[in-house]
Design a protein around this nucleic acid. Structure first.
Length: 590
RNA sequence: GGAGCUGUGGUGUAGAUGGUUAACAUAUCGGCCUGUCAAGCCGAAGACCGCGGGUUCGAGUCCCGUCAGCUCCGCCA
């Protein structure tokens, strides 16, 4: 029997009744009644019920009796309409079944270690070790399919705007700053190493200088940092770069793309344009540079009333140029002393010196700090916060960033339980160009060293670098950063100046980035771009919390692959060819 | 680098305060069964409780260490 199927199992319908079909797939559940056997035949499309009984041939029936889970078979049979009482409304193909006339077992299978079906509850360990079995589960195949469709939509969309998909090197050079690089030793240059790209950043800029004008790439990136539910050592970006294309054009382009994805893949109509918040405002109102706008609980500025209190913690923070911010927790009276202690601990871990709390009751404040506040002041603060009896108010007084960030973290922890999954997109713009690196005692790029300052802030580069705003932007969805980009520096003098401010010596910047500085001096067009985190985007489209769900073969939290056993040791010969010797591992003496 | 949670037949779980034959469901194997779709009924086999120490007359249970998975902090331009 030829193994080409005439139909997919899951797409058979009453309109196929009477047809002779050829099906291929895997054996799912088997219901053996002795003289009558029902078998769910599964392929990537879904299930169809096969029926075997004695009168249709003893040999075929015996073969059907020998079938076990995950055997691979090809069958030929007739699509039959089920009688009314035998219809299974829970199954898309529940109105029909296949009366098999011929069957070939193409392969047998060991008993799988877990059920090949949706909604299973097994250790992720097992799923990762047997990922190929996990991928047979419909919900996993659907994720692969969703990912494919998202990629295809993005490609076609960008193609329609004249973007070219262009590949860039995977073996490139290590650059300072940014994440830790994955290094690849060079055999032809012993002692030298390639780095896998953290992103194609420099290459896409060089493509702009190369006259491409509109580039994109759905590309793997590598960062040797610790993992999270939304971070893998290798991940995929939709990487975009354009020339002669200001940030407004870029926003419109990306908004069109995400609207297309959500429309086609989720049936959701996004309201465009996507709202924008400056970094400053996002921090001030939500305590985060990627706020989740699906719920309120905005932070409240209490600088003025706090200054009038006798509470030294508030006053000294304000005197030092800091800020006092409040977070209202509606109905927060249910919090126990112990839960408050946990919140305080969290606040301390986030860098706050402490956390002040106030229960608002009918009689007024119940709080360890109430003695520092007059009655009118307490009322004024409650009013500013919008608090009513039964609510809990949390206050942090510290440096502005700390006050905001700590309460922003608490806002996330204390978020309402049943927030909708509706997509709330947001652009966060006007990031600072630099932040101060206390450890290294120098300025670091907030985004990356090729980000252009806002033109009106250029003069601040010399006087107050930390006040310079960048032409950088992040795309945020429901509290998740799904993309970020910037307008780049296209002038070699400005680029030199930035390198200088980053405390890169002329020698260093020439050594590491000389090719870029030279390229910028040959008529570099104004350009800029963005990269969307493809794994995160697909995970959000799929409604998953972890990007591992939408990556076919992901790594564990310790960055290993449980299926292949990578990373693994290599042979002496391989190391010799690379002139690499391993250090003796130090045995602990105890 | 740090913190927390988890680890018991193939799988998912139960095993208060330490007590001798580690329980249940499901899967598996065998038998019966012609309308099931989580098929049903009967029976069988299957676990040295992640690993290594320790405390104890006695450890799945308590202690220490270690490994693995997950989550978070640091880290991620």
């Amino acid at each position: 029997m030829a193994w080409i199927k005439s139909h997919y199992c899951g797409y058979l319908s009453p309109s196929d009744v009477g047809k002779e079909v050829k099906l291929t797939g895997w054996i799912g559940r088997r219901r053996d009644h002795g003289g009558l056997i029902f078998i769910d035949l599964r392929d990537r499309s879904g299930l169809a019920q096969l029926v075997f009984d004695q009168p249709r041939g003893v040999e075929l029936f015996q073969l059907a009796e020998s079938l076990r889970s995950e055997y691979v078979v090809a069958v030929k049979g007739t699509v039959i309409k089920r009688t009314a009482e035998n219809i299974n409304p829970a199954l898309p193909t529940g109105e029909i079944e296949i009366h098999v006339s011929k069957m070939e077992v193409l392969n047998r299978s060991k008993t799988p270690p877990f059920y090949i079906e949706d909604g299973i509850n097994v250790d992720e360990n097992l799923r990762l070790r047997y990922r190929y079995l996990d991928l047979r589960r419909p919900e996993m195949f659907n994720r692969l399919q969703l990912r494919h469709r998202a990629a295809k939509l993005a490609r076609d969309y960008l193609d329609s705007y004249d973007f070219l998909e262009i590949e860039t090197p995977m073996l490139t050079r290590s650059t300072p700053e940014g994440a830790r690089d994955f290094l690849v030793p060079s055999r032809l240059h012993p002692g030298s190493f390639y780095a896998l790209p953290q992103s194609p950043q420099l290459f896409k800029q060089l493509l702009m200088i190369g006259g491409v004008e509109r580039y994109f790439q759905i590309v793997r990136c590598f960062r040797d940092e610790d993992l999270r539910a939304d971070r893998q050592p290798e991940f995929t970006q939709i990487d975009i770069e354009t020339s002669f294309f200001g940030s407004e054009n870029l926003f419109a382009l990306i908004e069109g793309l995400v609207a297309l994805l959500w429309k086609e893949l989720r049936g959701v109509d996004l309201k465009l344009p996507i709202p924008r918040l400056s970094y400053r405002e996002a921090m001030d109102r939500y305590g985060s540079d990627k706020p989740d706008l699906r719920y309120g609980m905005e932070l409240v500025n209490l600088d003025e009333p706090a200054a009038e209190s006798d509470f030294n913690v508030f006053k000294s923070a304000l005197d030092a140029g800091g800020a006092v911010r409040g977070l209202l927790v509606p109905g927060g009276k249910r919090f126990s002393r112990r839960e408050l202690d946990d919140l305080t601990l969290l606040a301390r871990q986030m860098g706050a010196k402490g956390l002040a709390w106030v229960f608002v009751e009918d009689e007024g404040w119940r709080s360890p700090i109430s003695k520092f506040f007059s009655e009118p002041l307490m009322n004024r603060i409650s009013e500013t916060m919008g608090a009513v009896p039964g609510d809990l108010m949390l206050f942090v007084a510290d440096r502005w960033e700390v006050s905001c960030q700590v309460l922003g973290q608490l806002r996330r922890v204390l978020a309402p339980k049943n927030i909708s999954a509706d997509p709330h997109f947001l652009w966060v713009v006007d990031f600072p160009l630099f932040h101060y690196n206390e450890e290294e005692e120098r300025y670091d790029s907030d985004h990356h060293p090729f980000t252009a300052p806002r033109p009106e802030d250029m003069s601040l580069l010399d006087s107050d670098p930390l006040a310079v705003r960048a032409q950088a932007y992040d795309l945020v969805l429901n509290g998740v950063e799904i993309g970020g980009g910037s307008i780049r520096i296209h002038n070699s003098d400005v680029q030199k100046k930035i390198f200088d401010l980053l405390s890169l010596t002329e020698e260093e910047s020439k050594e590491k980035f000389g090719f870029l500085l030279e390229a910028l001096s040959f008529g570099a067009p104004p350009h800029g771009g963005i990269a969307l985190g493809f794994d995160r985007t697909v995970a959000l489209l799929a409604g998953d919390d972890s990007i591992r769900q939408v990556i076919p073969f992901p790594k564990t939290a310790a960055a290993s692959c449980l299926m292949t056993g990578s990373p693994a040791q290599v042979s002496e010969k391989q190391l010799d060819e690379l002139e690499i010797s391993l250090q003796e591992t130090e045995e602990e003496e105890s």
